[in-house]
């Protein structure tokens, strides 16, 4: 199972910032994603953690081919996804699916659930009505809904059930990779656990790989095999999840972990409070992008961009402290 499914190499996405109404000129670039690399294996989950504006969502859009990268490549099973055309592209669309954060806005209110679920299948592949109905029934059962509920409209479901519908529709076309963009953060605590358990079970059953974009560290810990921590468009630390949570190295990762709320009122943990806020990605700081907020910043951090260092056990960190 541990075959490489997705490889992202030095991926960049810069959005131009323009000025002027008619004669627009580019005055700068938002460096939303700036040179990230990672791989996802079949049947595994990569967690992408970071604060808002760090480029998590842009990364998932690039992988879904909803945005064109400025530079760098994305390979699905060895094939460059930018090279897909026509039938190849349709096939790609069935292979990579997505589940979004908000099940209230991501499901069309005017379609029956069975049509929502079968859409990806019908649009991209030639299937008979019988095959379609069978598949809808199968995935609805897989996500814990019953077949009759396919006739209903999204407004007749609760939040947790809607997210199950969204998962079913992503699953219908036998994808190899599903991008989960904050899949549980809009749900209530008790419902969240149901959906997280469901996703983990489905992965075991179907061998689908997940890219889990989340800001909740406990969610990532629970679901992801590998975790990448992003800050201002770059991956600052990348490691197997166990290893990362036991032994975080990058000062930003440490701050992120210490900002997570305690599980018990008697939990005393050292709170690394970061000063200030995330700088603008239009003119990111020189050198290490984290240096203006870093409690351990040295002179060279402002000048020199840290390289990714291999600390063993598949643990990579980009920080001058470990050089």
């Amino acid at each position: 199972m541990n075959q490489e499914l997705l490889r992202v190499e030095n991926l960049k996405k810069h959005f131009p910032v323009t000025e002027g109404l008619v004669l627009q000129r580019t005055v700068g670039y938002v460096q939303a994603v700036d040179g990230i690399s990672f791989t996802i294996n079949n049947g595994e989950t990569l967690g992408l953690v970071g604060e808002s504006g760090c480029g998590k969502t842009t990364t998932s859009k690039l992988i879904l081919r909803l945005e064109k990268p400025t530079d760098g490549n994305i390979y699905l099973e060895g094939q460059d996804i930018q090279s897909f055309r026509g039938d190849g592209l349709r096939e790609f669309r069935t292979q990579v699916q997505a589940v979004f954060q908000d099940p209230w806005s991501s499901l069309s209110p005017r379609m029956r659930v069975k049509d929502i679920v079968s859409e990806a299948l019908v649009v991209n592949r030639n299937v008979s009505d019988q095959e379609r109905d069978d598949r809808v029934e199968e995935v609805l059962t897989q996500v814990g809904l019953h077949q009759g509920q396919g006739e209903l409209y999204p407004h007749e479901f609760s939040g947790g059930q809607r997210q199950r519908v969204a998962v079913a529709s992503a699953l219908a076309s036998y994808p190899k990779l599903i991008i989960l963009d904050e899949p549980v953060s809009a749900l209530d605590v008790s419902i969240r656990a149901q959906v997280m358990n469901l996703l983990v079970d489905l992965q075991k059953e179907t061998g689908v790989a997940f890219l889990l974009v989340a800001h909740n560290l406990a969610t990532v810990r629970y679901m992801a095999h590998q975790t990448a921590v992003m800050y201002l468009g770059q991956i600052v630390e990348y490691s197997p999840t166990e290893e990362l949570y036991e032994n975080p190295l990058h000062p930003y990762t440490k701050a992120l972990f210490s900002a997570a709320l305690p599980a018990h009122p008697d939990d005393q943990r050292e709170e690394v409070v970061l000063t200030g806020e995330v700088p603008s990605p239009i003119n990111p700081p020189s050198g290490c992008r984290f240096h203006p907020r870093c409690p351990f910043a040295m002179d060279r951090c402002a000048v020199e961009v840290p390289l990714q260092l291999d600390k063993g056990n598949g643990h990579f960190v980009s920080c001058h402290l470990y050089d």
Binding site: V189, S190, I191, A193, M196, A218, T219, R221, Y222, A263
Partner: peptide, 22 residues
């Protein structure tokens, strides 16, 4: 009790307890 058990923790990876129904 059920609500507390269903919250994922940073130091745990065992299966989450989920409250059935709504």
């Amino acid at each position: 009790q059920a609500l507390m058990a269903s919250v994922p923790q940073m130091d745990r990876t065992d299966r989450l307890f989920a409250i059935d129904g709504q």
